[in-house]
Deep mutational scan, measured.
Amino acid sequence: KKSYVLIKVKNPKTKETHTIVVPEENLEEVLKALASQPNVKVVDIERFP
């Protein structure tokens, strides 16, 4: 059974918020990819039960 993680990201320029759902096993690479985006800020990470 896969567990999923909900990542909320915000664009500081446009103030838009997006929610991305990723499998927990991919969380680290997704966070690394997001960290390299200049106008993306991770605001929240939630685990799915």
Score class of each variant (00 low, 15 high):
residue 30 V to I: 11
residue 39 N to C: 07
residue 39 N to M: 04
residue 40 V to R: 05
residue 9 V to L: 15
residue 19 T to Q: 08
residue 42 V to C: 04
residue 13 K to C: 11
residue 48 F to R: 06
residue 24 E to A: 08
residue 47 R to A: 10
residue 21 V to K: 09
residue 43 V to R: 01
residue 20 I to T: 02
residue 42 V to S: 01
residue 46 E to I: 13
residue 20 I to S: 01
residue 44 D to K: 09
residue 15 K to D: 15
residue 22 V to Y: 02
residue 26 N to V: 10
residue 34 L to Q: 00
residue 41 K to T: 13
residue 43 V to W: 02
residue 40 V to Y: 09
residue 16 E to M: 04
residue 38 P to K: 05
residue 15 K to G: 13
residue 19 T to C: 14
residue 5 V to S: 02
residue 38 P to C: 05
residue 23 P to A: 12
residue 19 T to Y: 10
residue 38 P to H: 07
residue 29 E to D: 09
residue 33 A to I: 13
residue 34 L to C: 02
residue 35 A to K: 14
residue 33 A to C: 14
residue 35 A to N: 06
residue 5 V to D: 00
residue 1 K to N: 12
residue 10 K to N: 13
residue 18 H to N: 05
residue 48 F to E: 05
residue 30 V to E: 04
residue 7 I to P: 00
residue 8 K to A: 03
residue 42 V to K: 01
residue 19 T to G: 06
residue 42 V to E: 01
residue 32 K to N: 09
residue 32 K to G: 04
residue 46 E to W: 08
residue 37 Q to N: 11
residue 12 P to K: 13
residue 30 V to C: 06
residue 2 K to A: 12
residue 29 E to W: 12
residue 16 E to L: 05
residue 31 L to C: 03
residue 41 K to L: 14
residue 8 K to D: 01
residue 43 V to A: 03
residue 43 V to P: 00
residue 26 N to Q: 08
residue 25 E to Q: 08
residue 21 V to P: 02
residue 33 A to Q: 12
residue 13 K to N: 13
residue 43 V to Y: 04
residue 5 V to A: 06
residue 5 V to K: 01
residue 16 E to F: 03
residue 25 E to R: 05
residue 15 K to W: 13
residue 10 K to R: 12
residue 4 Y to F: 09
residue 12 P to C: 15
residue 41 K to C: 08
residue 30 V to P: 00
residue 18 H to W: 15
residue 27 L to D: 00
residue 36 S to H: 08
residue 25 E to D: 09
residue 10 K to Y: 15
residue 8 K to G: 02
residue 33 A to S: 10
residue 18 H to V: 12
residue 2 K to D: 15
residue 21 V to T: 09
residue 46 E to G: 07
residue 6 L to V: 10
residue 16 E to S: 03
residue 16 E to T: 05
residue 6 L to E: 04
residue 17 T to Q: 10
residue 39 N to D: 13
residue 45 I to A: 02
residue 48 F to S: 05
residue 29 E to T: 10
residue 39 N to F: 07
residue 22 V to M: 03
residue 23 P to M: 08
residue 7 I to H: 00
residue 7 I to Q: 00
residue 35 A to Q: 09
residue 31 L to P: 00
residue 25 E to K: 05
residue 35 A to T: 08
residue 29 E to P: 05
residue 11 N to I: 06
residue 33 A to Y: 14
residue 37 Q to G: 04
residue 7 I to T: 00
residue 1 K to H: 14
residue 29 E to Q: 14
residue 43 V to K: 02
residue 22 V to K: 00
residue 21 V to E: 05
residue 24 E to Q: 06
residue 27 L to P: 00
residue 36 S to C: 07
residue 46 E to V: 13
residue 23 P to V: 10
residue 7 I to V: 10
residue 3 S to D: 11
residue 33 A to G: 08
residue 32 K to H: 08
residue 18 H to A: 08
residue 15 K to C: 15
residue 43 V to G: 02
residue 36 S to R: 10
residue 30 V to M: 12
residue 14 T to I: 02
residue 2 K to W: 08
residue 9 V to F: 15
residue 29 E to M: 12
residue 22 V to W: 03
residue 31 L to R: 01
residue 12 P to D: 15
residue 28 E to G: 10
residue 40 V to G: 02
residue 16 E to G: 04
residue 12 P to T: 15
residue 35 A to S: 10
residue 14 T to R: 05
residue 21 V to L: 13
residue 3 S to L: 12
residue 32 K to T: 08
residue 17 T to M: 10
residue 48 F to D: 04
residue 17 T to V: 13
residue 28 E to I: 08
residue 24 E to V: 07
residue 45 I to D: 01
residue 6 L to N: 04
residue 12 P to A: 14
residue 45 I to L: 04
residue 22 V to L: 03
residue 11 N to A: 02
residue 16 E to D: 05
residue 35 A to E: 12
residue 7 I to F: 01
residue 41 K to Q: 15
residue 33 A to F: 13
residue 28 E to H: 11
residue 40 V to A: 08
residue 20 I to R: 02
residue 19 T to M: 06
residue 1 K to V: 10
residue 14 T to H: 05
residue 21 V to N: 03
residue 34 L to D: 00
residue 42 V to T: 01
residue 19 T to I: 08
residue 25 E to C: 04
residue 26 N to S: 10
residue 47 R to E: 07
residue 22 V to H: 02
residue 18 H to R: 14
residue 27 L to V: 06
residue 4 Y to M: 06
residue 7 I to L: 04
residue 31 L to D: 00
residue 22 V to D: 00
residue 44 D to C: 12
residue 46 E to L: 13
residue 27 L to H: 03
residue 42 V to R: 01
residue 47 R to H: 08
residue 24 E to F: 09
residue 21 V to M: 12
residue 33 A to H: 14
residue 12 P to Y: 15
residue 45 I to S: 01
residue 23 P to D: 11
residue 12 P to V: 15
residue 18 H to F: 15
residue 13 K to P: 02
residue 11 N to D: 10
residue 4 Y to V: 03
residue 31 L to Q: 01
residue 28 E to F: 10
residue 7 I to Y: 00
residue 2 K to G: 15
residue 13 K to A: 11
residue 49 P to E: 13
residue 18 H to C: 12
residue 14 T to M: 03
residue 44 D to V: 11
residue 22 V to G: 01
residue 43 V to Q: 04
residue 16 E to W: 05
residue 44 D to R: 08
residue 34 L to T: 01
residue 10 K to I: 15
residue 41 K to H: 14
residue 27 L to A: 04
residue 30 V to F: 11
residue 32 K to R: 10
residue 41 K to P: 02
residue 31 L to T: 01
residue 9 V to H: 02
residue 36 S to L: 14
residue 10 K to T: 15
residue 12 P to W: 15
residue 49 P to Y: 07
residue 13 K to F: 14
residue 49 P to C: 14
residue 47 R to Q: 06
residue 46 E to R: 12
residue 33 A to P: 00
residue 10 K to F: 15
residue 14 T to E: 04
residue 31 L to F: 02
residue 23 P to Y: 14
residue 10 K to L: 15
residue 48 F to L: 14
residue 27 L to K: 02
residue 31 L to V: 03
residue 18 H to S: 11
residue 17 T to Y: 08
residue 22 V to T: 04
residue 24 E to M: 08
residue 27 L to M: 07
residue 14 T to V: 03
residue 38 P to I: 07
residue 38 P to R: 03
residue 38 P to G: 09
residue 33 A to K: 11
residue 3 S to M: 14
residue 23 P to T: 06
residue 45 I to N: 01
residue 44 D to A: 14
residue 10 K to E: 15
residue 3 S to W: 15
residue 42 V to I: 11
residue 11 N to S: 04
residue 32 K to V: 07
residue 40 V to M: 14
residue 38 P to Q: 08
residue 26 N to K: 12
residue 29 E to C: 07
residue 11 N to H: 06
residue 11 N to R: 04
residue 47 R to T: 09
residue 28 E to N: 06
residue 2 K to I: 14
residue 23 P to L: 14
residue 33 A to V: 10
residue 6 L to R: 14
residue 45 I to W: 10
residue 48 F to H: 07
residue 39 N to T: 07
residue 5 V to Q: 01
residue 22 V to P: 00
residue 8 K to P: 00
residue 7 I to W: 00
residue 12 P to R: 15
residue 29 E to F: 11
residue 17 T to P: 03
residue 18 H to E: 07
residue 6 L to C: 05
residue 22 V to C: 03
residue 25 E to V: 05
residue 32 K to L: 11
residue 34 L to S: 00
residue 49 P to L: 10
residue 28 E to P: 07
residue 38 P to Y: 03
residue 48 F to N: 07
residue 6 L to S: 08
residue 49 P to G: 05
residue 10 K to W: 15
residue 34 L to V: 03
residue 12 P to H: 15
residue 14 T to A: 03
residue 28 E to W: 07
residue 40 V to I: 09
residue 20 I to A: 01
residue 25 E to S: 08
residue 35 A to C: 05
residue 28 E to M: 11
residue 17 T to K: 05
residue 13 K to W: 09
residue 30 V to W: 12
residue 35 A to L: 13
residue 6 L to I: 13
residue 20 I to F: 15
